[in-house]
Amino acid sequence: MSSLKAYLIFLNIVLCFHVITSHTCHSFKNVTVLLHQKSGDPFNKTVNGCIERIEFNEKNVVTEAYIRNQSLPTLGRESVRNMVKLKTLVFWGCNIVNVESGAFRNLPRLKNLQISYGNLKEISRDVFHAAPTLELLRIHNNEIDIIADQALANLPGLKKIYAGNNMLEYWNREWFTNSTSLEIMDFQFNKIRTLPRRAFENLQNLKQIFFDYNEISNIHDNAFIGLKNLDYLGLRFNRLVSINENIFPSSLKIRSLLLDANYLNYLSNELLNKISVSELTLDGNPWKCPCLDRIHFWLHSSNGTLNKADSCTGSSIPDCAISKTYSTTCLETVDSDLTKKYIKSLRGLSKPLDKYCARTDYILIAV
């Protein structure tokens, strides 16, 4: 055998070994996976390595896979691969800290993906690209503080995302480039501070937006441009001192608008004339009494309904407060003294309010 031929054989062996080892997966070690077949019959499988078709009997067409309450700190490259019939994949309570790029490969029918109740800190850019048919994504109850640009992009079928109970401080419309079918967006219980301009411009199918329980103090002009009808807009338990009418497009219809427990003294006439609201909740804000009266009249005139909130309500909680500069008309200015007065009255209640009501731990320092 010539030295050249021997070298080529050796090189081929090395390359084959490299290909085999580069695709070896070690994400799972004695992990029990609950699987559902196409027939609907569930069975358990202990997996070492990857979740992939060749792990299962060929007659078992797996459509659902559930991994619950097991130690999986990392989903490495190709942890789940070549599951061409898989529609649902759930990781629940698995203490996942890291999902590497390429953790999922060749999942052409995956519709529902959940990675929740873990310690996930970051969503990388191409984690979900292997599942172009994704419709529902649950990444709530983690510690996510970074989502890479376009990490949730190019998912044309994505309709629902639940990302609440994380540590996000910023919201970026670039996350959702070309994912224009979104209908429900839930980012409650994060630390988001602001909503940027044109935040939802390319998400015109949105019906429900949940930003309750954040730190939002600023919503930029035209933030909601592109939207025409919303079933739900939740801005409860934030830090809004005022709402500029320019954040909304003209004639926006909102079925339920929730503004509870912010620091609002008034809503401007321009805002009230610009939007249509069927149901409104206002409790726990330091309203100027004439301004609150004007909101009541606006709702009555438009056949809207004022609903009571689930919290921050009660016979001992004041609905509004009177400014030092008394006026029978609504003065559209922020009144810090009135806000302090209102919050002081809440702090003096014999029955303490829950920690979210009007953010009483913050307002006396910040205002």
Rank of each mutant, 00 (worst) to 15 (best):
residue 217 S to P: 11
residue 272 L to V: 13
residue 130 A to F: 04
residue 150 Q to V: 04
residue 2 S to T: 14
residue 131 A to Q: 03
residue 84 V to G: 01
residue 252 L to P: 04
residue 325 T to K: 07
residue 170 Y to D: 04
residue 73 P to G: 07
residue 6 A to L: 12
residue 32 T to Q: 13
residue 230 L to N: 00
residue 91 F to L: 03
residue 148 A to I: 06
residue 156 P to N: 03
residue 216 I to D: 01
residue 219 I to Q: 03
residue 194 T to K: 09
residue 195 L to W: 02
residue 348 G to R: 09
residue 91 F to D: 01
residue 189 F to E: 00
residue 83 M to A: 04
residue 266 Y to A: 05
residue 69 N to I: 11
residue 364 L to S: 15
residue 69 N to A: 14
residue 17 F to R: 01
residue 114 Q to I: 12
residue 6 A to M: 14
residue 147 I to H: 00
residue 344 K to V: 14
residue 320 C to K: 00
residue 77 R to K: 14
residue 299 L to S: 08
residue 84 V to P: 10
residue 142 N to R: 02
residue 306 L to Y: 10
residue 18 H to G: 10
residue 242 S to P: 05
residue 69 N to L: 15
residue 228 K to E: 13
residue 218 N to L: 14
residue 198 R to F: 15
residue 363 I to R: 07
residue 139 I to N: 00
residue 168 L to I: 06
residue 5 K to H: 15
residue 281 T to S: 14
residue 161 I to F: 01
residue 135 E to Y: 04
residue 220 H to E: 15
residue 270 E to N: 09
residue 315 S to F: 08
residue 309 A to K: 07
residue 241 V to A: 14
residue 175 W to H: 00
residue 121 K to T: 06
residue 40 G to R: 05
residue 67 I to Q: 02
residue 128 F to G: 03
residue 120 L to Y: 06
residue 330 C to Q: 06
residue 325 T to Q: 09
residue 296 H to W: 05
residue 356 Y to R: 12
residue 144 I to H: 00
residue 250 S to P: 06
residue 313 T to C: 07
residue 155 L to Q: 02
residue 244 N to M: 13
residue 141 N to E: 13
residue 161 I to S: 03
residue 365 I to W: 11
residue 328 T to D: 15
residue 310 D to R: 13
residue 308 K to E: 15
residue 17 F to V: 08
residue 132 P to S: 02
residue 9 I to M: 10
residue 111 K to T: 10
residue 257 L to Y: 04
residue 160 K to A: 10
residue 192 I to K: 01
residue 22 S to P: 11
residue 63 T to Q: 04
residue 31 V to E: 08
residue 320 C to I: 04
residue 48 N to P: 10
residue 235 L to R: 07
residue 195 L to H: 03
residue 224 F to T: 01
residue 130 A to W: 07
residue 42 P to Y: 07
residue 322 I to W: 10
residue 103 A to K: 02
residue 72 L to Q: 03
residue 83 M to Q: 03
residue 233 L to M: 08
residue 267 L to Q: 00
residue 41 D to V: 14
residue 202 N to L: 11
residue 149 D to L: 01
residue 180 T to K: 13
residue 361 D to P: 09
residue 187 F to A: 02
residue 262 N to Q: 05
residue 204 Q to K: 09
residue 206 L to S: 04
residue 56 F to L: 07
residue 332 E to P: 11
residue 144 I to C: 03
residue 244 N to I: 12
residue 104 F to P: 03
residue 99 V to N: 02
residue 144 I to T: 01
residue 294 R to F: 05
residue 30 N to S: 08
residue 162 Y to Q: 13
residue 11 L to F: 10
residue 73 P to C: 00
residue 164 G to I: 08
residue 53 R to F: 12
residue 172 N to W: 10
